[in-house]
Design a binder for these strands. Sequence first.
DNA 1: TGTACATCAGTGAACGCGCGTTCACTGATGTAC
DNA 2: TGTACATCAGTGAACGCGCGTTCACTGATGTAC
Lengths: 202, 202
Amino acid sequence: MKKSRAETAQTRQRILEVAVQAFKSKGITATGVAEIMAGAGLSHGGFYRHFETKEQLVAKACAASMATFVQSFEAAAAGGHESFLKHLQDFLSTAHRDEMLGGCALVAIGSELVRADAETRRAATQGFEDLVDVIAKWMPQKDSSSAKDEALFTLSAMIGAVTMARMIDDPALSARTLDVARERLAPQPSRPQKKRARSTRG
Amino acid sequence: MKKSRAETAQTRQRILEVAVQAFKSKGITATGVAEIMAGAGLSHGGFYRHFETKEQLVAKACAASMATFVQSFEAAAAGGHESFLKHLQDFLSTAHRDEMLGGCALVAIGSELVRADAETRRAATQGFEDLVDVIAKWMPQKDSSSAKDEALFTLSAMIGAVTMARMIDDPALSARTLDVARERLAPQPSRPQKKRARSTRG
DNA sequence: TGTACATCAGTGAACGCGCGTTCACTGATGTAC
DNA sequence: TGTACATCAGTGAACGCGCGTTCACTGATGTAC
């Protein structure tokens, strides 16, 4: 039952997409190869016609997921400062918190990536750095060096906030965690102010 | 071979301590019950004399780890503002990044805690909130509400920074991630200034 | 305080199960002539 | 363009292994008298 080259490429792509969603929703270790193949409508044995090991799939899935995520950021950034700011706010929204499948892999499997193999960490780091570069373009800092620093802080803080918001079992505290991050990292420039925004409460 | 009550309590404590370290260094899913028991010098069968399930052990281990971590924060906070600030800086140090065993569970297994059971998430959330409260005491904000907001932001940002610093495979970028977080979240008050510290570079 | 007995911490074999990976096989695809 | 054959995507059984959990058993501990 050999398939055409086009079909083979499609199948590989399908496995990759299912893997990305499975890893992000269930975690890397807790997701099995057979489970992914079943999700792609295939039996488990054919997996090794497309990937050498599960580890390699993890690396490719991480790279694919990050590439998609970076693209969405670049598209938003290309739409101007307002569009970019909206994208930062969406990252820190309850919608992103509650949506594991389409969300950021660095949030969904962050602590698992720490223990992943070299190729996977490389892909994750590359994606992280790409995001930093996109964010840096819209930072108010004059020189690019301190703009990148600010972007580096912004991104790592956002990832921490969404991760904790997902973990926290108290809905009010979870929402507040996102709110305070949004106020500080992606403030609405409704009233002109150069400095970091302060809390709008109390 | 029944053991005395004191011995039984010691054994349970030993299992818990081994579990805390194993979960933090290898992750929850990747750590087996037999492995933990072997680490405590026991065979795997006796595990169920101390805990009902692996999930329950995870919850207890999470609670124990967070309690220890909160205590270290409280001790540092009791030593005055300088001592407290030093503790924040230590959290964002390369030493904490490289030390999985004694470090913060929210960093080590953050994305796994999202998928943990209710009891574990409760323990993690409680620990998180306790840390927020300790940090809030030393925040410069006047009213306690916005001090807690600032502490909430500080803690979630610190967790994101250390998690990403552990994942990043480029040593310079990893160190810079910690640096920029330290500058913004735990600035040295060497020259008196009320506002958030700026980058000391560029 | 001493004896008889119930309790239960810990052992190690065994349970069913799913894991990642391998392999013989099938048959459509792609290639060589 | 048509035929002969090598390739290889996908199947499904099987591999060894480790998982969480159970259980019969042992013998020291704690208790009741």
